[in-house]
Nucleic acid binder design. Structure first.
Length: 245
RNA sequence: GCUGGAGUCGUCUAGUGGCUAUGACAGCAGACUGUAAAUCUGCCGGGGUUCCCCCAUCGUAGGUUCGAGUCCUACCUCCAGCA
């Protein structure tokens, strides 16, 4: 059994290509993926959250998907406990845990070992050094390239499967939960109801995505230990890092 | 060609004689340790010594007025209707 010294973490804004590159790496090094994504935890939200499909998972075990129903309470603290548990389990089986996702708060709760015992307002400046158990790789894109990718993704997403998914979600959960309101489902629904034309719905969905990507980048900028690389250099860099250990 | 309507920031928009030209979207930057794809903040005509100061600005050019985005005249552009 091989013992890895550090757990690779792959982060990046939405639409940066985390999922596919992580799966490729996992296949080569015997990895299993823990998703750090606050939307992928919800059952029934698949296309609209760009959750990796069975095909996209490519046989690599994924954790952190479909944990709760929309509207159910699931906090950072819950996610941190879950992720730590999974890391132990995966390592016990002799595989490499990989943390992959764009929810900065989730990732930081793990790599900075946030304590949630008591509810105290803390800030970024209060936190301690990043844990040496992890190495963080960030997928870097130029503004225009990322915008183009996000737009392409929106164009592909708007299809009958997404419409079906939206209708099911609305019927089952309504609009009460934050999970529903925060997504592109709102615009899909308005389009389906004739409140927006297709162009407008896609535009709004795109802006929501892009704004999210910007906020994610603002968050990640605080961590100067992140190794930023273009998408096509992530895989070789991560594999080299693992093999050199 | 005639008649009517309209031209305000990248886009849409408020404004009908009075202090500093609204608001939204987009854009930029930032905060954020218990639902974070959430929530929240600043900038957003140009320049500077940036809690302040200077200059510019509502299609263009004039005019009326103490004072004009607002009223008047001409011209330009767009839209609608009539020819």
């Amino acid at each position: 059994m091989r013992k890895f010294r550090k757990i690779p973490v792959i982060i990046g804004p939405t639409g940066s290509g985390k999922t596919s590159v992580a799966v490729e790496i996992a296949k080569e090094v015997g990895g299993e993926i823990i998703s750090a994504d606050s939307r992928a935890i919800y059952k029934g939200m698949n296309i609209g959250t760009a959750k990796p499909s069975a095909v996209e998972q490519g046989g690599v075990p994924h954790f952190g998907l479909d944990l709760v129903e929309p509207g159910e309470r699931f906090t950072v603290a819950d996610w941190k406990d879950y992720a730590e548990q999974k890391i132990k389990e995966i390592e016990a089986r002799g595989y490499l845990p990989m943390v992959v996702g764009g929810t900065g708060l989730y990732v930081d709760s793990l790599i900075y070992n946030y304590q949630f015992n008591e509810i105290v307002q803390k800030s970024y400046s209060d936190r301690t050094e990043m844990s040496s158990d992890f190495v963080v790789f960030g997928i870097k894109w130029g503004t225009n390239e990322l915008r183009e990718r996000l737009w392409q993704r929106i164009e592909q997403m708007f299809c009958s499967e997404l419409y079906d998914e939206t209708c099911k979600l609305v019927k089952r959960y309504g609009w009460g939960s934050q999970a529903m309101k925060s997504n592109i489902y709102e615009y899909v629904w308005k389009y389906l109801n004739g409140e927006m034309d297709l162009k407008e719905a896609k535009e709004k969905a795109f802006y929501r995505d892009y704004h999210l990507a910007k906020r994610q980048m603002t968050w990640f900028k605080r961590n100067d230990k992140i190794i930023w690389l273009p998408l096509d250099q992530i895989k070789p860099a991560v594999i080299k890092y693992i093999q050199d250990e």
